[in-house]
Structure formats: C-alpha cells, structure tokens
Design a protein around this nucleic acid. Structure first.
Lengths: 98, 98
DNA sequence: GTTATAGGCAAGTGCCCGCTTGCCTGTCAA
DNA sequence: TTGACAGGCAAGCGGGCACTTGCCTATAAC
C-alpha cells in the first residue's frame, strides 16, 4: 500500500481544494462557516453533509486538524503533508527567489 | 473552471504516480520500457493500453513531455507544474536546509 | 424541560474513470 | 514486399466516489 494515497485522494477533488483555499484565507472555521463562505464567495452550493464528508477526507489525509470546543468544531489547515510531494519528485529550480 | 484540475486529476491515480517514480529514476523511456519496468520492478501488471492512457493523462497535465524519434516515442518527466501546489497552499517551513 | 443550533451516521443513487477489447496506422528489417 | 515491432483510436464494462436523504446525538439558549 502506498503511503500518501489518502493525500492525493484528498487533493483530487475540486471542492476539497477550494476548502483548503478558504482555510488558507481564514483558518479555524466551523463547518457552517465553511458552508456559508463556499456558497457566497466561491459560488458552489454544496450541502452541509457533503462538506462534512469532504472535511473528513481532508482530515484523514492530514491536511486538516480539528479542535472541539463546546458544540463547535474548528478546522485548521496543515500544509506540511504537501512537502512529501516535492520531495518525491524534486522540482529542478526549487527556490525561484534569490 | 479551475486551472490545475488536470494536474490534480493526474496525481490522483497510484499507477500514474508510480510512472512518475519510474521516470524520475530513468528519464526518457518508451511506452514498452515503462510497461516492462513497472511489471518487473513495481509488481503491477497493467496492460500496454492502460499505461498509454495514463501517459496521455500525465502529458495533458504537463507532467510528462514526449519526443518522437522514428517509431519510438520517448517520455520525459517535467516536475515544474508541482510548484503551483506549494505556491497555492504555502508550507510554513518551506526550505529545511540552510 | 423545551427548543434551536452544530454536527454525526448510514444507506441509496448516479456518474465519472480506469481498464479491457478489438482493430488500425506508421516505421524498420528481411 | 512482407512481416514484426511501437504506438494509437474508440467503444463497452465495472467499481469507486461524490452527493443526497433521513434520522440521530449533543451542547447551549429560553
């Protein structure tokens, strides 16, 4: 079995990538916050359950970490798994800026 | 429409990722070479047509560039599209080595 | 306690995608 | 010219995945 299978599977969906964009812009959102901002700011109207399942996939891939507080569940992005991608297939001009 | 949709779609399949591993190790292989080495060295027995379709997806994503020479077609890896991933979601400790 | 809010669980469905199958095109050696 | 070799094209099939639907749990406000 491949190690990063969950990572690439998580990145394979456009909605999940947009969720990562949202969490990059504003980290630590709840499920309902993400739903609202995805609809308003990104134009995609997905149901709450759909987003919830997407977040579960992202969490399994290690790209999202959660923190419970009362009845709220905050979602935080973690981009560190992405490093394994460029480590696996090295990009030649790694650092463009001097 | 998203820009890097083809890129993430290409990376979403385990066989295609193994093809990138193969081309990283030995660049400029033909279709039949890739088929043989995937079978022997990686244990996955995919048909020639399957690998051909995988290479087409990788080429459409910009991860593989081809060069025809007579009846041979050599495949070269191009990892530069991967840079857009870490640019989109910046990794905090970007450069581990000083 | 009662109601509203935030989130979870599980079964069912439709569709995309990887793979096969079969046949065709083009290049090189005999 | 004929055969073998390297690769391409297109239709069909099956499984996985995203999404819905319906109901349930838990925390907080009233």
């Amino acid at each position: 079995m491949e190690a990063d299978a969950d990572l690439f599977r998580a990145l394979g969906d456009a909605t999940r990538r947009t969720i990562l964009d949202e969490l990059t812009e504003r980290d630590g959102q709840t499920l309902f916050e993400i739903c609202g901002r995805l609809t308003v700011r990104h134009g995609l109207s997905s149901s709450r359950q759909a987003i919830s399942q997407h977040l579960a996939v992202l969490e399994q891939a290690g790209l999202v970490r959660t923190r419970r507080q009362g009845r709220y569940k905050f979602h935080h992005i973690d981009t560190s798994p992405l490093r394994s991608i460029v480590e696996r297939w090295p990009v030649h001009g790694e650092d463009p800026n001097p």
